[in-house]
């Protein structure tokens, strides 16, 4: 083995990292005088140069992250197509290189980045779509509480119900969007051509995101249901909620509606515990 004056461990790695993450590729990176010492320390063979060897790592860096973000933002990727998605991610990585152990966290700042990207000026809903896909991914990584047994609720005395407060599953998220991108997300299994023809409309959406045993459910809520659910989530008792809805001129909610909602929220894993303070 050749024995040369080795560059310090940190300088070697910082220089290599600079080369491998340069979006302009190895040749562009090596035009930077601060890293030009590096190829001198790389072994070559007659068939493969040091630049080619660096190129393998350079390509792998981008492609691995591109693939990971493509699987975490599948609808965004499919809507944009490979070329636009690749362009978007190349731009994103310049501003937001990964600092995470879990590769999935790289996408955390993508929705905000997309909102400022030229592609969002062309397709105004991209920011909402990427935000929805990020919330879905985050929901997948949240722990759940065990289901609430509907049968056990029958044993609760009627007079206790007004005081009841609900504990929500930790995976539950509410998001407000300006576009009906949930339609695109919910139909993501459709063929690409069909999805392309789906018209995304500007329309205020209040979405409920919750994880079930299999995957993540995304559901658009009407104004009444959204208001009721968020009040309970904010700590209101069932009695408070009923009083609020009864006294509000804005809503036309019958007591039977609340019963149906609660049944549905428990069945779909949104409500997980009942407490009587």
């Amino acid at each position: 083995m050749a024995s040369e004056i080795a560059p310090p461990w940190s300088k070697l790695q910082e220089s290599l990292q600079k080369i491998l993450t340069d979006s302009g590729g190895v040749n562009n990176a090596l035009s930077n005088p601060s890293v030009q010492f590096l190829p001198h320390f790389l072994a070559e063979t007659s068939t493969v140069s040091a630049r080619e060897r660096l190129g393998v790592y350079c390509d792998a860096y981008f492609l691995r992250i591109l693939e990971s973000l493509g699987s975490d933002f599948p609808t965004l990727k499919e809507f944009l197509g490979d070329k636009n998605f690749r362009h978007l991610i190349a731009d994103y990585l310049k501003d937001h290189p990964s600092r995470f152990k879990n590769i999935s966290l790289i996408g955390e700042r993508l929705p905000k980045f997309v909102s400022r990207h030229p592609l969002n000026r062309k397709f105004g809903f991209l920011s909402d779509l990427s935000r929805l896909e990020w919330e879905v991914l985050s929901c997948l990584y949240r722990d759940r509480l065990s289901p609430l047994n509907l049968e056990s609720l029958r044993q609760i005395p009627e007079k206790s119900w007004p005081k009841a407060r609900f504990i929500f599953d930790p995976s539950v998220r509410f998001i407000e969007l300006d576009w009906d991108v949930d339609r695109l997300w919910n139909e993501r299994m459709l063929a690409r051509a069909k999805k392309r023809s789906l018209k995304i409309k500007k329309s205020e959406r209040s979405l409920l995101i919750v994880r079930d045993h299999q995957w993540v459910q995304v559901r658009a809520l009407g104004l009444e249901e959204s208001t009721a659910l968020k009040r309970l989530h904010g700590g209101a008792s069932l009695g408070n909620l009923c009083d609020f809805l009864e006294n509000s001129r804005k809503f036309q909610v019958k007591p039977g509606d609340i019963q149906v909602w609660i049944h549905d929220w428990i069945s779909s894993g949104v409500l997980k515990r009942l407490v009587f303070p």
Partner: peptide
């Protein structure tokens, strides 16, 4: 090594 200065390149990078 996989990165330096807090970055992660998500690759198995070679060592001298």
């Amino acid at each position: 090594w996989t990165g330096v200065k807090g970055q992660n390149l998500h690759d198995l990078l070679p060592l001298p």
